[in-house]
Simulated assay, not measured.
Amino acid sequence: MDGSSYIRLKEPQLRDAALPSTCETAGTSAGAVSSRLASASLIPLVALLAGSLTAVWLSVRTGSSTSRFAGLEVPILRYVLLALVACALLGVLIEGLVLDRWPLAVPAIAGSVVLVLAALLLILEEVAASLIPTSFLPTSVRRLTVDVYGGLGIWMAAFASLALVVTSRIDGGAIGVAHKVWMGVQRLPLRWLAAFILVGVSVCVAAWSRYQPWAAGSAGIERIEVPGWSLPFVGPGSLIAVVALGAAAVVLTVQRNLVAALVLVVSGWALSFLAALALLATSTLARVKVNQYLPSTVERYGPSVEVRWGAWLMFATGCVAAACGMAIVYWSEREIR
């Protein structure tokens, strides 16, 4: 056997000896994060999920009084939420830190159940007021306005549970996800980065502005401010648009997707359309001079309607989101060509 053939036979063995093991390769691809460190990175998310139970999950307004309930104050649901948070914490401690397993199954399952419960409760809260049969109530009671809506706690729980599900199934946990996002941000052109920042801010502002006053009505000394979520058709429609806007933003953060960019455009224009619809209806009602049809003695106590700043904020936010979406679509088309 000559020297060249000997070298050819030995080269695969040398390459095999130089290759790292499977565990080393997985650790390097996840930013050299061990499974125990990845599991420990989920503890802040579990703490955020537990903290959301002390914030407002349910608000009930009757007339001029409002009652607010934290997640731990909702009957029956509080025991379910506490059990799920305990399961998520024990899953991280036992399955991740003690047994050294990855990915984690128990925290992902517990987070998924919390996410489903938060979404269902949010939907029920949005439609609860419209389900109240006010036409069958006595006239004295019918005058009272009954509103049921969510609060900061339920949105915190939805975000924390979604983040827990995602990070418990990706290599490196929260550290690995943060590393991948940071690497993706560094590779983005400046214009893409600016568009993504505007989209993220738009999602937060749109979700917040739904709970701000869009219209106000007064009669005598009584004054009621109407938030955007409680308006017929506009409230449920804006919820769907905000969720679609957030989902498109998440997909675009992970990868440049043309379909997600189109969804972003449609969601932004939908929010602007709903806000414009509320502005048009409120402005039309405000032009009706009811006082001139009342006796002079009670003319100054007549009802009046006015537009509030929440509708304008939602209109501007939708336009910004749609403009960012159109820019992303244009840039994506140029890259494809």
Rank of each mutant, 00 (worst) to 15 (best):
A163Y: 03
L89R: 05
L124Y: 12
E125C: 10
L124P: 08
W57Y: 14
E126G: 15
R78G: 04
L58I: 12
R61Q: 14
G151I: 06
L124C: 14
L121R: 11
V74K: 06
V80K: 00
A105T: 03
R68G: 02
V148N: 01
L152K: 01
L97V: 04
A160Y: 05
A163M: 14
A129D: 11
S135D: 12
L82A: 13
I132R: 11
W102P: 04
I76R: 12
R143K: 12
V92R: 04
F136M: 07
L131N: 05
C87I: 04
A108T: 08
L72V: 12
A128W: 14
V85N: 10
S140P: 00
G91S: 10
W57S: 09
T134E: 09
P107G: 05
R78M: 11
G63T: 12
V146W: 13
L97W: 01
F159V: 15
I94E: 04
V106R: 08
V127C: 03
L104F: 01
A86T: 07
T134W: 09
A105K: 09
V113A: 07
G111L: 09
S112Y: 02
Y79C: 10
A70E: 12
G111T: 05
R142H: 14
T145N: 11
G63W: 07
R68C: 07
W102S: 01
S140E: 13
A160S: 15
A86N: 03
R68E: 08
A83H: 02
